[in-house]
Design a protein around this nucleic acid. Sequence first.
DNA 1: AATGAATGAGGGTTCATTCAT
DNA 2: TATGAATGAACCCTCATTCAT
Lengths: 216, 216, 216, 216
Amino acid sequence: MPPTPLRDLFQNNLQDDQELPAKQKQVLQAALDLFAVQGFDNTTTKQIATLANVSEGTVYKRFKTKEQLLTAVLKPIITDVTPQMASEFKRVITNHPFESISDLIITIGKDRLQFVWDNQKELRILLGEILKQTQPVKEFTQLITTTIVPAVYHQFDQLKERNKLINWDNERIFQYIISVLLGYGARIVIFSSPIELEQTLTETAEFFERGLAPNK
Amino acid sequence: MPPTPLRDLFQNNLQDDQELPAKQKQVLQAALDLFAVQGFDNTTTKQIATLANVSEGTVYKRFKTKEQLLTAVLKPIITDVTPQMASEFKRVITNHPFESISDLIITIGKDRLQFVWDNQKELRILLGEILKQTQPVKEFTQLITTTIVPAVYHQFDQLKERNKLINWDNERIFQYIISVLLGYGARIVIFSSPIELEQTLTETAEFFERGLAPNK
Amino acid sequence: MPPTPLRDLFQNNLQDDQELPAKQKQVLQAALDLFAVQGFDNTTTKQIATLANVSEGTVYKRFKTKEQLLTAVLKPIITDVTPQMASEFKRVITNHPFESISDLIITIGKDRLQFVWDNQKELRILLGEILKQTQPVKEFTQLITTTIVPAVYHQFDQLKERNKLINWDNERIFQYIISVLLGYGARIVIFSSPIELEQTLTETAEFFERGLAPNK
Amino acid sequence: MPPTPLRDLFQNNLQDDQELPAKQKQVLQAALDLFAVQGFDNTTTKQIATLANVSEGTVYKRFKTKEQLLTAVLKPIITDVTPQMASEFKRVITNHPFESISDLIITIGKDRLQFVWDNQKELRILLGEILKQTQPVKEFTQLITTTIVPAVYHQFDQLKERNKLINWDNERIFQYIISVLLGYGARIVIFSSPIELEQTLTETAEFFERGLAPNK
DNA sequence: AATGAATGAGGGTTCATTCAT
DNA sequence: TATGAATGAACCCTCATTCAT
């Protein structure tokens, strides 16, 4: 079961929000779509209003600032991406611990790269803002390091115990894996180049299996 | 001998240009510095003029558009980064072919990561513009693939011949290596986090030595 | 017994009005308070609604325009200030005619300057709007001249008859007195500077007693 | 020789300013005229631009804010009104000391009331802003009290020495005189009601001559 | 060639006013 | 009747770009 696309998550979130009037939801949706395609700076509040079928005044009714609009758009993305990733790990941990580093890479990679592919546009906003070091994004990175990273390290430790993983620093191992996976992700987001997901991951797993095999 | 910082390369290039009037050179230099710190969108032509000690009109004497100014700033970066990287490989190739994948990673990594560290700001512009898919940047990526990639592949082939590298597709091998190295680069550019260059690379090399060792 | 503060007069008037719904009364009260502090231009209909514990729509239920709101606020002030001032004179006239110009100045001055002190804020609106030559304010000045002025002139005449006042034009005498008294008033309204009421008036009376003594 | 109208003083000042481009002068002149007629809040930068035959951008070229424009307009008024008034006193002091309180009132009154009459509009801006307690106006009042007031007090002292003025506190005497004179001024500014200057002042002087005569 | 004043379209934002519920 | 979401004109201000000097 592939992860839900961000845009859908976003929309669901909006619909669940009882307080937010319909038009305000349209505003957020329009802002998301426009920011994703044109970037924050190159998007006009007028454009947002038009795409949302709403007057410009309505855009400012709830969100007092264009900046606040960005935050409102970014926040659900951030708060959804992170917990989902975290839960992904936790779920697998409790249900059936990873048999091998291969297992871990393929399971996570499949899920997350699919997610990236499904959400190219949305993630491009994130990337753009990361480069600007916007405040909400700083929180994001911190969130990642406090939730996901420990979960992964825990997995590493378990694999090490069962002698399925080389006895290097968790940080070091994480670095390599995350770099390669993010490398794929970056190519998707930046160049929209498709990936032969299944095979690519199998090969990648094979590589890490070699590189991270414990010394016998 | 560490690679020359982009800013110096840029300046040298400017001074060599006989056609460009002095004031125009100041303009380009100012534009580079400001774009790097504030980004393209958040930089004013007035700011450029002021920093360049030049009138606003002068900024537009040669470069008819702010966009053209960006191009003019980006182009030397692109055309300098690429050949240098290419020549880096070629030089090492001709002088003394890499003894091992370790050798390659450490040599190249040392050089390029140092380069990244020295040019964080400038590279951040590049990254920002890459996300916007600006025209000059598309050329950049193409340039890379036509000059650097073949050079590296050639190295891979040689290592394979001498049975020092596993017989996988060059592209696949390249993917892994470039991902890990760019991973370090990204961390530098985005978070300005320093790196224990020497040791990091030695460890990284060790990892790849394992992962990419030929089947015996 | 000091004169009732305008704000209270205003409130009483509102409560007496049977036709006006409770919420509308709250609106007027809020408008008065806000206009007094921030001025008409710098007060938002939203602010009025909020302070009145009422929706923005309700503000416009009866008063079709922000301008009408100002009128509605100004009118009771005007129609209350003036009659009260007029009756003040008349009352004193009928009860016990002034013994001297001193008597008149001290009696009136005490009452009116106290009034000014108690209603600085409200009067500041009036002054501000006077400068803009708003319609309701024109009525105000007219009202003053038709009610108060004759009452005072009548007093002057009586004093003259008893040889207690110089035989100058009433208008001229009025000018001097009103100027000095308004001078005190202005200082209060503009600079909020307190006044030693009792002594100041005694001294002022002494001055006028000299300046306006009849030729013997 | 009547005092130069503010608008002319203003214009002269502008023309003397070598640095200020012609269009900027038009901007200030237009701002002055519009503020005087409509008040600050009700004047649009677009209106200013139109009246000045200038683009809206030009309005903001030198004056970064509408508020700064007000300051720029107010400053010359303030800095011209005050010194002129001060010098008026000083000039008369040195040349020929006032013979009597009559002399003082007529001399000063003539000059200043003429000035008020000639500059109704401009002074109305001042008054409007005084009520708002804007910063530049606070300086104004302070300037008055530190320059003019002492000069007048000095005159009072001299008259007292020569037994031509009652021995009251200078402040008290000043109060009465200024109130009556400002009373005339206010009527001019607010109601544009003309004054029979010469006669009015003669009468006023007579009144003060009585009220402020020394005890024999 | 260089200046910097001038332009004017357009951006973000506010707010009096309207109207569906 | 009361609500408050919605409107849209207009405001202040910015800035890439032009042009007279």
